[in-house]
Design a protein around this nucleic acid. Sequence first.
DNA 1: GACCGATCCTACCGACGGGTAGCTTTTCGT
DNA 2: ACGAAAAGCTACCCGTCGGTAGGATCGGTC
Lengths: 226, 226
Amino acid sequence: MSAPSRSRSGPGDPPRAGRRRAAHLGPAIRRPQVLDATLKLLVEHGYAGTSMGAIADAVGVTKPVVYECYPSKRELFGALLEREEGRIVAAIGSALGEEWKPVEESEEAYTQGFTALLTAARDAPDSWRIVFDSRGGPDPAVERRAREVRTLVVERLAAMIAAALEAGDRPRHGGDPARVAPVLAEMVVAIGESGVRTMLTTEGAWTPAELGSLLGRVAARGIEDL
Amino acid sequence: MSAPSRSRSGPGDPPRAGRRRAAHLGPAIRRPQVLDATLKLLVEHGYAGTSMGAIADAVGVTKPVVYECYPSKRELFGALLEREEGRIVAAIGSALGEEWKPVEESEEAYTQGFTALLTAARDAPDSWRIVFDSRGGPDPAVERRAREVRTLVVERLAAMIAAALEAGDRPRHGGDPARVAPVLAEMVVAIGESGVRTMLTTEGAWTPAELGSLLGRVAARGIEDL
DNA sequence: GACCGATCCTACCGACGGGTAGCTTTTCGT
DNA sequence: ACGAAAAGCTACCCGTCGGTAGGATCGGTC
């Protein structure tokens, strides 16, 4: 699970165990295949542990074909991040919704949000891992982008929570909303991540709706009357 | 922040920019220095991105000296993990305490636990990162060990939460405690991690006690009456 | 002040990874 | 059926990395 090297043994680069010549599909078709393979390997072995040769093998092709799709390793991973970032942002958008619901319905709002998030996470878990769990990044620029996405999510959530805190006219115990909201936002995101982990490790024991409901209840109760 | 290469430029291995010969300290003294340097680099660049040469440079020494301390890269990282694992387990022990407090005081129990955790995390943040955020591990064996520590923590917490859920004689909405407790445990751990992140990113804006109190309140309220 | 073991350093090896040049095979239009 | 463009493949370059041999230096001892 951790040895990224392909099954090599010969002296030169090409192991070419009796693999058949790959079909002539062309860069346009190959590019998404390359990204898919890269995503999988990246999650398993990290950036430095993922070699272009291993990616080529995973696609069932040789290195120059990969380089025909992306001119360098950096650009490949940059493109990958961009694609996953798009997926994440779209999912987050639908999970958070555009408007903050009234406080009375906040539990329902959280439940819906978590459910949407968990559904998206179940359908494309690696996309989430790459952003929320990004370490050992490609190079400073790409890694920074990954962190920025997370920061963006947390900030948007923080703004929504701050608005909700201020809207409520009950006594405040937690101090200044502007100070507390970011912490709570970070926490809500963490709760979402914990849900993703739960779904992945228990594999089918929970449905997104079921788990989302549980998480939503906990999050809403924890935050209300703060 | 992401280029693990040392400042090399010459053709061979040794850059030897005008560094002075290191003092004769010996393996026994050097070993902890090597572990410290390795931990720092590991957190920054991941396993594959951390070279023995870079470690040597960080210690202010050359590669053979590092190999005098640990016979291989694998063993070095194994020893590192063992040390950090010990620190973590000790901190967790004091954070969780030995007994589960009555439900009435659960908020206080959580607060104390989080505060202890955050204090430990503040004092040795990298120890935590390496375990909770372990990806691209050294080799299957070592990486597995890292995950086991996390699993252990979550399991112990789950047992305590399950006990607390069953002890409470109030109506249950969340379903079977044995099913719900692991999810909540995962969540509490996630909340703790979010607290660590908050402390790291806001750098001094929160004290462990203050933040621990906030997190404890949220966690306790979220879980009680479930 | 000369010896000696412990310690460190220079210089190197084989393997692997990113990246490329140029040949071979497939595919497709005519 | 044939030729050329498109796509893949082999074989290689160069730099870095894990790891090692053997010479240089330090620090204490007699």
